[in-house]
Every structure is written in structure tokens, then in C-alpha cells.
Design a protein around this nucleic acid. Structure first.
Lengths: 201, 201
DNA sequence: GTCTATACTACGATAGAC
DNA sequence: GTCTATCGTAGTATAGAC
């Protein structure tokens, strides 16, 4: 699959030939389905973003206690990223990489950017609502989003390095479960304001 | 500088020609200083890692209250990453990217990996010491390191995306100052255990 | 230590047969 | 819709003059 190749080595690091071999076609056949390499790459990226958005939608649209909503979002995001080892890497590349797509695929680029903006806009609203309601500490929403992205997307994109650090595969069921627990624990203590009724001690 | 080029577009995305033009030399002259493109890239990466280690050393070697040491490390790490816009991007690539350096530059690759391991080993010890001393909550040290890396390295590597999210340049003095404050606040509440004397409320 | 020239390969992309 | 063949460019790397 082209997705795995681009996730591992990025837009510039993968050749059309390689993709063609992986899907069992000739180079030229790929150009019949995608006008250029940039179109192919952006189509793959957008598909990943759409999948994330779909997985996150229920949790992001839920109503109720902000802290509970946040927990649900963390669970959904981690589940979405842990589903395929390629997802986080591709997403991380889309976030920080500054490839030159030549302007020919401007429409596909904007489609991906808009999907990303929709997802982040909902996270932003969740955080701001929670702060306004007094459920969260008065943090900066953008900075918290960045921390959240780093703690999830980067984590599952860290590949062999992450495996070595954890001492076990990043995508093992145990490591995924632990990631959720660690992250929710940190946020519950660090972001959620203690309620009046019943201290934690 | 080659550092800026590799930071922006990665190992595969930059050509020797481009680097040569940037430093005002001919292509062939570069091969006189570096045996191959991989050697050049890894030399750049290692230099960045060494710079980080140098900047972090004082904070990591300090003694005293674990919470204060952690704060000092956050400050030092953010300062190091904020010094040049290329540092975090190059570092992030080194962490998650899986380029094929052809095995010819195995020695340079190991040198970079060892420097990275030294830095992370010290962070690991700081966290474990703090947990053992009862100053930190009983979190997973590797997971916390991943969160920390994501919250710092990813953040300063996020480029235009981060600029847009924050509404101001990532590397502006105000944004850097805010990053430190947000991060230290999250960790003080989320990682550091409240002391017996004097609750926060 | 830097240059020109070149070898050789791979790249993205196109044309046209089937 | 897939193929073979090919174009033009750019890639890494080497050889050898200065």
C-alpha cells in the first residue's frame, strides 16, 4: 500500500515505481488514476484525515461533563491512531512537513487542510467550553492542543525509537492501553479542576 | 546552511546540488568533506544533538528538589529548541524518520543514537528519582518522556501549522515564554505531587 | 580544497499501442 | 485500464585538472 510507504519515508523518499510495484501495477497505470505524485500523496493523506475525523466524531459531538468528554476524545484518538501503524506517521508528516507540491494539487491540499482544521476546531471548542464552565484550568487552548497532538500523534509515530523507549511494541495492546491511562491521568490532574465535592485524597 | 534544508524537507527531499549552492560550493567539493550524502546528513544531525546535550547538561546535572530540577530542564530544553527554528524539526526527523542510509554511515548513525540515548537516560533518571522520592506521581517514566518530547520537540517543529494554531509565530519571544509557562503548569499540577505543607487551594 | 566533466542510475511524466 | 517505450531532468558519486 502507498500509505505504508509514504508513512515510512515521506513524500520525497518514495518513488512512483515503488508504489506501483507495491500495488502490482506499472508506473504509467498510476498516472491514469492520479494526475501526479502530489495528487496521489495528498489523496492518501486526506483519506487518513477523513478516517480520523470519522472515528473522533462521536466523542467530539458528545455532550455533558467536559472532563468526561475529554476522556472520551483521548480514547477515540488513541484508538484511531493505534488502528494502523501508518496513521500517526502520515498525520505527523502532514502537520510539520513542508513539502513542495508544485501548486498543481492545490485543491487536494486545501481539502486535507480543511478536514484537519475541522477536527482541531472541535478540540478547541471542547477546551474553551471546559475552561469557561470552570471544569478546566485556565490554560491556553492552542498550546494544550499542541501538547495533546504531540502526546498522541508523535507518540504513535515514533516507531522503532518508541519501541525501544517503552521496551515493548508501541502498538501492542498493553502499550496502547497504558498510553490512554497515562495521558488521561496526566490531564485529569493537570487540566481538570478539582470539583468542590470530594477531594481526591 | 545544510541544516535548514534538511530540517525543512528531510534527507530524501534535499539534493546535494541544493546544499552545494546554499554553501557556495560545487557539488563535488562537498564529497571531499563528506563521503556521501548520508554522512553529511548524519553529521548535521549529530551536531544538533550535541548542541542540545550541551544546553541541557547544567539542568540535568543539578541536584535538589525534583520538581525544581524538572522545571529547569523544561526551561533549558525549550530554550535550546527555540534558539534555531531548524533544531526541533531536525531532531523530530531523527526520532521518527526511518531513512535508509545504506549502511555505509553506520558509525555516524550510532554516534547520533548514543548522544540521544544519553540525553534521554538522564531524563529517565530524573523522573524515576522523583517518583521514588515521592515528589512525582507514580507515572510511567518512558510514557512521560514521550509526552515531554511531543510537547516540546513536536511543538517547535510544527512550523506554519503551529504558527496558525497559536495565531503568532512559534518562535516569537512571547510564544516561547508562554510555552514554558503552559508546560510547567501542566506538569506541576499533573506530575508533581502536592506537598504536605500548604495545599494549593 | 575547489573546479569541470562525466558516468550511471533513478526520477516524474507522457505518448501511444492494446 | 494497463501495458511498453521513451523523454528530459535531476540524482549520487567519481575522475582528474588546477
Amino acid at each position: 500500500m502507498a500509505e505504508a510507504l509514504f508513512a515510512r519515508r515521506g513524500f520525497a523518499g518514495v518513488g512512483i515505481q515503488e508504489v506501483a510495484d507495491a500495488v502490482g501495477l506499472g508506473k504509467s497505470s498510476l498516472f491514469h488514476h492520479f494526475r501526479s505524485k502530489a495528487h496521489l500523496y495528498l489523496a492518501v493523506l486526506h483519506r487518513v484525515l477523513a478516517r480520523i475525523e470519522e472515528r473522533l466524531a462521536p466523542a467530539l459531538e458528545a455532550v455533558g461533563d467536559p472532563a468526561a468528554r475529554l476522556d472520551a476524545c483521548i480514547d477515540a484518538l488513541v484508538d484511531a491512531l493505534a488502528e494502523h501503524p501508518t496513521t500517526a506517521r502520515l498525520l505527523l508528516r502532514g502537520l510539520f512537513e513542508d513539502d513542495d507540491f508544485g501548486g498543481g494539487a492545490a485543491q487536494e491540499l486545501r481539502a486535507a487542510e480543511e478536514t484537519l482544521a475541522r477536527i482541531l476546531g472541535r478540540f478547541d471548542r471542547l477546551l474553551r467550553d471546559g475552561i469557561e464552565a470552570g471544569a478546566f484550568h485556565a490554560v491556553s487552548a492552542p498550546h494544550t492542543i499542541q501538547t495533546l497532538v504531540g502526546a498522541t500523534v508523535y507518540h504513535f509515530a515514533s516507531g522503532e525509537f518508541g519501541d525501544g523507549l517503552l521496551g515493548r511494541p508501541l502498538f501492542s495492546a498493553e502499550a496502547v492501553r497504558r498510553r490512554k491511562a497515562e495521558l488521561k491521568g496526566l490531564l485529569r490532574r493537570g487540566l481538570v479542576r478539582p470539583t468542590e465535592t470530594g477531594g481526591s485524597t
